[in-house]
Design a protein around this nucleic acid. Structure first.
Lengths: 214, 214
DNA sequence: CCTACCGATCGGTAGG
DNA sequence: CCTACCGATCGGTAGG
């Protein structure tokens, strides 16, 4: 039993390592191929274990997905809150938010939403939506709300609703990525281009009028 | 042989009707659940036929998907070209394009791109990309190019490349839909909101400056 | 001998 | 963490 305890402790440590490896591997695969496009055998194979061994660490395929999602959204929340708090100027905040999302989450956001809607059991939808709101929707909407209060961002009246709509639009703009963009310089240029688009649109007059102030 | 000919003609007509019904049904299912989320049995069931009967009309599942895609993109091409040609004012064109896409294709565009990339055989990718470019990318880019030439749309120098980038952004903005919007009035308001966003962004100054002219 | 379709089952693979 | 499997369902095809 003493030997059993020792090996069980080591086993637990290895088990935790394996668990992390499963999450990391599954994340890359899920983001590339989608939930249905990744089999548990594929995840196991990529981790160097057999498929039934997965079920020693997780009760089912869905729980791997949810754990991965929870980890990602917790990290996203921390990062976005830090960016929003540390920047004073709207355009700089937008550029840094966009750069962060392009670099750290270089995948299709709508595949994610699709998988959550169609592959994850409905009982988890509300939880996931709250994760998403606090990780992404709220920090970005906060930024726009501050802009509306300062008068730099347009609002038709209801500041909070307009800020949320803009936050939704920002995510849409980032939803489909040009996968060719990879270098730091290219990402930075793309972030600047998108931030300018979100602020001033494609009209030449709005850009010329507003660019003079900065 | 005469009787045979007659019954074969009627059979062919019924066959064509069934084929159209399969395409129409498969379209709705594929757009809601994605390629992998729809089984051939589900398609057949929704058409009121058995699953093996599908293989009388199509050699395989993929060919149903490709036929549906080709039909949709041919229709989209005609409609978008008509809108672009019939409108003189940029904002009106944008609103009508957005309204058309929201109403006629109320699904997630990125699920479509994902399915094409991961589920359709690579030999068809180039063909599909050309369908997409001529149906959507080119008509919308043409609109922005005209705006750039008139001076109303901003360009950093290369008009054609900037117009294509804007066309890509417009599709991104439309990629994720608020499924609650359904009535004609709501769609119309959403189209106006999005067209204004694309033209002037979220900055209050760019909107106030430019709104006075219209 | 054709068509449009049926019930049943093929080889393989999914999550568990 | 393995081998050996399960109930079910997948896309596709057999004979009638």
């Amino acid at each position: 039993m003493v030997k059993g305890k020792r090996s069980s402790q080591l086993g637990a440590e290895n088990g935790i390592e394996t668990r992390k490896k499963i999450i990391k591997t599954a994340r890359a695969l899920f983001m590339e191929y989608g939930y249905r496009g990744v089999s548990t055998r594929k995840i196991a194979e990529s981790c160097g274990i057999t498929q039934p061994a997965l079920y020693h660490h997780f009760p089912n395929k869905q729980s791997i997905y949810l754990e991965m999602l929870r980890n990602d959204l917790l990290e996203m929340k921390t990062s976005l809150q830090r960016i929003v708090q540390s920047c004073d100027e709207m355009k700089e905040s937008l550029e840094r938010i966009i750069y962060f999302l392009l670099e750290r989450y270089p995948f299709n956001l709508h595949q994610l939403f699709h998988d959550i809607e169609h592959e994850v059991a409905e009982e988890h939808h509300e939880t996931i939506q709250e994760w998403w709101r606090s990780a992404c929707q709220r920090p970005i909407a906060t930024l726009f709300e501050e802009g509306i209060e300062k008068g730099t961002i347009y609002s038709e009246g209801n500041n909070q609703i307009d800020a949320e709509r803009y936050s939704f639009l920002l995510m849409n703009v980032l939803s489909q990525r040009d996968q060719r963009l990879r270098s730091r310089k290219e990402l930075s240029e793309q972030a600047s281009f998108l931030a300018t688009f979100i602020l001033y649109g494609v009209s030449s007059q709005s850009r010329l009028t507003t660019n003079n102030e900065s």
